[in-house]
Nucleic acid binder design. Structure first.
Length: 221
DNA sequence: CCAGACGTTGTT
DNA sequence: GTCTGG
DNA sequence: CCAGACGTTGTT
DNA sequence: GTCTGG
């Protein structure tokens, strides 16, 4: 699955990589991005591609209580196209969530070992995401969730689920502004090829979400 | 029809 | 809002 | 994801 | 054990 990640790249690199014209309002890199925080996402508003912040943890438009978002940080791609909470979003609220590595905790006999996973080229990438707008009692939230799938052979060694990462050439297809039947969006995700990853152990320092400096990504022996 | 859930992960 | 169960 | 709290009454 | 906050 995916419950913690990094985005360390310069703003300019992100704008170039994703073909965004306008600067990001309040861009801030992070060594330790956690659920409940604002995360950098790219959407197509029908007119142009835009990058901005969404709160991680989907709060569906019908929710009474925004705290439901703590349970909605991921969506299973195998079933999202038929779940009441995600079906409509698969059709029209698809987004890219910008990252350059993510953390997974591998269970061992000694406990949980956090690992940092990057693409083999160590470059920027995008998680496939869904977003929604929530209005309640005069409060408005824009929130998102990361789609997951069964782990590929590399990731299986670490964990049995993994986030969906879009191949660069498929990113624009995922956020194209046209409506897509929900099952078609599901089939699109199934059709993606796997990326090549590399991983290394990091210290438990990363476990505490308020820790946010280079120690989070420092390799340990 | 109305009422009530709507989600993921992991663990058992 | 939409879907499922009764 | 992990870490840390989780409760009330009454008094200061 | 379960929920909330980071």
């Amino acid at each position: 699955m995916c419950g913690r990640y990094t985005l360390l790249a310069d703003e300019l690199e992100i704008l170039q990589e994703f073909g965004i014209d306008q600067p990001v309002e309040n861009y801030h890199p992070s060594y330790n991005i956690a659920p409940g925080q604002d995360v950098l996402a790219v959407i197509h508003d029908g007119n142009e591609k835009r990058a901005g912040y969404l709160r991680w943890g989907l709060v569906p438009s019908w929710a009474e209580d925004e705290r439901i978002g703590y349970k909605m940080i991921n969506a299973r791609s195998e079933t999202a196209h038929k779940k009441p909470s995600f079906k409509q979003l698969m059709s029209r609220k698809r987004c890219l969530i910008v990252a350059d590595s993510f953390y997974e905790w591998m269970k061992t006999e000694e406990g949980k070992q956090p690992k940092r996973i990057q693409l083999k080229d160590r470059g920027l990438f995008a998680f496939a995401g869904l977003w929604d707008k929530w209005n309640h009692d005069g409060k408005t939230l824009f929130t998102c969730t990361i789609l997951t799938k069964e782990a590929n052979p590399f990731m299986q060694e670490i964990h049995h689920r993994m986030p969906i990462i879009l191949p660069k050439e498929k990113e624009d297809d995922w956020i194209k502004p046209e409506k897509m039947p929900p099952n078609e969006a599901g089939e699109f995700l199934e059709s993606l090829h796997d990326e090549d990853f590399t991983a290394y152990d990091v210290a438990n320092y990363v476990n505490t979400a308020k820790n946010n400096d280079e120690q989070c990504i420092k390799p340990i022996a």
